[in-house]
Nucleic acid binder design. Structure first.
Length: 359
DNA sequence: CAGGCGTGGAT
DNA sequence: TATCCAAGCCT
């Protein structure tokens, strides 16, 4: 039997819940860099970085990003390559490109002021339902829901909602729930309090119910089945793809790298050339490279296999070392650079692994 | 809607 | 090692 709507139980004391949550949050919130003030730009950047990324991972990136791009205008004027370099290692790189695009739009259309208007904010690249609510509530104190994984987990337990949180439709349900119980006195602390509770107390596994500030409001705790909530369907297993990765060095000791396409996986990041093994056998590599790049290479050894797990695919890259004649040629997005120059190019972690094998 | 889109921490 | 999953968005 599918549940298409949800009504908050009459038993649920939303006023007492707000009070208990806000009191706990006030006394237990972490001191985080993006909580130092309410600068909408800082809140915005932090929310983008925090998408699917843990707080401890974000902190150093956020601090360096703010040091390098203290204001919207400075970010808007930056080269995308430098923005990606600042994002290097953080993952989901389209976040950085979308943020850069959005910031430029804010400079042009809104005089470099982050719009507090819901419709204007929502139209910006990279701002979806969650980030919209987060920026509106945290930066502007608007009573808008900001429903992320924490909020769905916490509220699914509190209100005993067993809808599959992996389904888009379920998030809308939680947004409706939050609209009904959010604090109009302090929407910022309410939204952050729910997330903070999810991060510090109401863990996915082994929730610390005994010390939970809203235990008395929790239906799942009352039922004793908090470990069965939230309901979430499993993700599919990643498929493995095998590649050859070519570390090419010319007579000047420079290495060949290229820029990836402007969309798809690792868009606009740089890499040592790779090719699917199912498309070209190792015997065909020399000819393939000649045809594809117009360069004659000489393979001299095969190195280690590098394994890298992405969110949806696994790469196994056999590293091939080769020399190349001449190599001043740099048509397309490929070029020869020294190891020192290589440091300036944004490269994803899989490529960093390959780079470390150079000796 | 389902699937593409990174990385690292926790168990 | 395997699996989940973390302040999601885009197409």
């Amino acid at each position: 039997m599918e549940q298409t709507s949800f009504t908050i139980p009459l038993l649920f004391n939303d006023e007492a819940f707000r009070h208990d949550l806000l009191t706990w949050y006030q006394g237990n919130k972490r001191l985080l860099p993006w909580r130092e003030n309410q600068d909408p730009y800082r809140i915005w950047v932090s929310e983008i970085m925090l998408q699917q990324t843990q707080v401890d991972t974000v902190i150093p990136y956020f601090n360096q990003f703010m040091e390098r791009y203290p204001t919207i205008k400075e970010l808007a004027e930056a080269d995308e390559q430098n923005v990606l370099k600042s994002w290097e290692g953080l993952g989901y790189y389209s976040r950085a490109r979308n943020l850069h695009t959005a910031v430029k739009e804010v400079v042009e259309k809104y005089d470099a002021q982050v719009p507090s208007d819901k419709k204007e904010l929502k139209q910006l690249k990279g701002i979806g339902p969650y980030t919209l609510g987060a920026v509106l509530s945290i930066a502007f104190n608007h009573p808008e829901p900001a429903v992320d994984g924490n909020v769905m987990r916490v509220l699914s337990r509190i209100l005993h909602i067993d809808e599959d949180i992996a389904k888009p439709k379920t998030k809308k349900l939680f947004e409706e729930v939050v609209k009904e119980i959010i604090s109009y006195e302090d929407p910022s602390s309410f939204n952050q309090g729910l997330m903070e509770l999810g991060a510090l107390v109401c863990h996915p596994k082994n929730p610390e119910c005994e010390t939970c500030p809203v235990q008395q409001h929790c239906l799942a705790y009352e039922h004793g089945d908090q470990k069965d909530l939230p309901v979430k369907t499993k993700q599919k297993k990643q498929k493995v793809s095998s590649y050859y990765g070519l570390v090419l060095k010319n007579d000047e000791g420079k290495f060949f790298i290229q820029k990836r396409p402007d969309e798809g996986l690792l868009a606009n990041m740089w890499e040592f050339p790779i090719v699917l093994q199912e498309e070209f056998d190792q015997k065909e590599l020399v000819n393939w490279f000649e045809v594809e790049y117009g360069l004659s290479i000489n393979i001299y050894t095969q190195g280690k296999r590098v394994r890298h797990v992405f969110s949806h695919v696994i790469w196994e890259v056999d590293v091939i070392y080769a020399s190349v004649k001449g190599g001043q040629k740099s048509d397309g997005d490929g070029k020869f650079v020294t190891l020192e120059e290589l440091e300036r190019y944004p490269m994803p972690n899989i490529q960093q692994k390959i780079k470390k094998l150079i000796h």
